[in-house]
């Protein structure tokens, strides 16, 4: 692909572990079989985002998509692997380089109410960071913030109001203006339109696309909503229990998904154009990330699983131009299992 990626995750892992408490340590000293519980939220993931791209990161709850987003936005350190910003390792940057790289990646969250300080006025919420980082002087602050507010569709005369005086969609616009205020290159959107009504959601998505053109932004767009991701992304990455299972362009991925999990996700997406009277859900629950299944994490729910899937982790391999999936079926000599109709289970 083209040149050095803007940001690249190389074998990035993020583990969360709970330390044993005092009583458990004593119990262990007496021979109880206790060990620290570790969740592999992100498990050796490789992901490159090129400048100007919109990459969608999809998956169900607990798949690690938000954690990966946070690691890439630089607000959470990786426990393994490295994140490279324009080819340089993020963790190794120092001084002004570090500050610049951190400012250049900003995040927009799902619930603006929990990310906007309720005691601050909008002008201070948006204006604090550029002021602190010397991007704007105090006398020029109001004009600077008013200009940003205008661009994201907020009435600049409301700058002295508090977050609770705005509707959900407007609050999301405040969050967007805050992210833009430090002139970022990459924006990580974590479920940024999930809590909005469909019409407001469309307004915000349009705003994201307009801002992309206007500021030449790159997006990592995290969402559980395949419809949204399909619409706005240049590339889609599907995660399941901490690992990437498939990646491809929306056209390829949605019309010809290779991984059984992607297929299940796409098939079960309710849609108004495709009225089905019957459901053929994939079996089973999403397993706990505390005890992920061996081998391919999807094998207990997969209708095509065979012996190898229980033992060996499938690696991401190219299945077509720009498309890759992590599934042992890719190595099967007969394509029957892949192209055949998806057997149904309930």
């Amino acid at each position: 692909m083209m040149g050095t990626p803007l940001i690249e995750a190389k074998n990035v892992s993020r583990r969360f572990s709970r330390k044993l408490d005092y009583a458990e340590k004593i119990a262990r000293a007496f021979g109880a079989n206790l060990s620290e519980k570790t969740v592999h939220a992100v498990d050796e993931v490789n992901l490159a985002v090129h400048s100007g791209e919109v990459v969608g990161l999809v998956g169900e709850s607990g798949c690690g998509k938000s954690t990966l987003g946070r690691v890439m936005a630089g607000i959470m350190p990786a426990s393994g692997g490295e994140v490279r910003w324009k080819g340089r390792e993020l963790a190794g940057l120092k001084g002004p380089d570090k500050r610049q790289a951190r400012l250049a990646a900003q995040m927009i969250f799902q619930d603006p109410m929990s990310t906007l300080n309720p005691r601050k006025r909008v002008i201070d919420i948006i204006g604090e960071a550029p002021l602190v980082h010397g991007l704007v002087t105090r006398p020029a602050l109001r004009d600077y913030v008013a200009d940003l507010a205008q661009r994201v569709g907020l009435d600049p005369s409301y700058l002295d109001r508090y977050p609770h005086q705005f509707s959900g969609g407007q609050r999301q616009r405040i969050g967007i203006a805050r992210a833009l205020a430090v002139k970022p290159e990459l924006i990580v959107c974590d479920e940024s339109v999930a809590a909005l009504d469909v019409s407001i959601q469309a307004q915000i998505l349009n705003l994201f696309m307009d801002l992309r053109k206007e500021f030449g932004l790159t997006y990592l767009f995290i969402s559980h909503d395949l419809g949204v991701v399909k619409h706005i992304c240049d590339r889609v990455v599907v995660m399941y229990l901490g690992r990437i299972v498939e990646t491809g362009t929306p056209d390829e991925l949605f019309s010809n998904p290779k991984h059984p999990y992607t297929r299940a996700l796409i098939r079960e997406l309710p849609s108004i154009s495709d009225r089905r009277r019957d459901f053929t859900p994939v079996k089973g629950e999403i397993p706990s990330p505390l005890h992920p299944p061996s081998g391919c994490h999807f094998h207990p729910r997969c209708p095509h699983a065979f012996a190898r899937c229980q033992q060996e982790r499938p690696l991401l391999q190219e299945t077509g131009p720009g498309q890759a999936s992590a599934c042992h079926l890719n190595d099967e000599p007969s394509p029957a299992a892949r192209t055949g109709t998806f057997s149904t289970v309930s």
Binding site: E60, L226, L269, P281, I286
Partner: peptide, 11 residues
């Protein structure tokens, strides 16, 4: 609920 779980419940 997640998509695959929603589908199960609808079913």
């Amino acid at each position: 609920l997640d998509v695959t779980i929603q589908s199960q419940i609808l079913y």
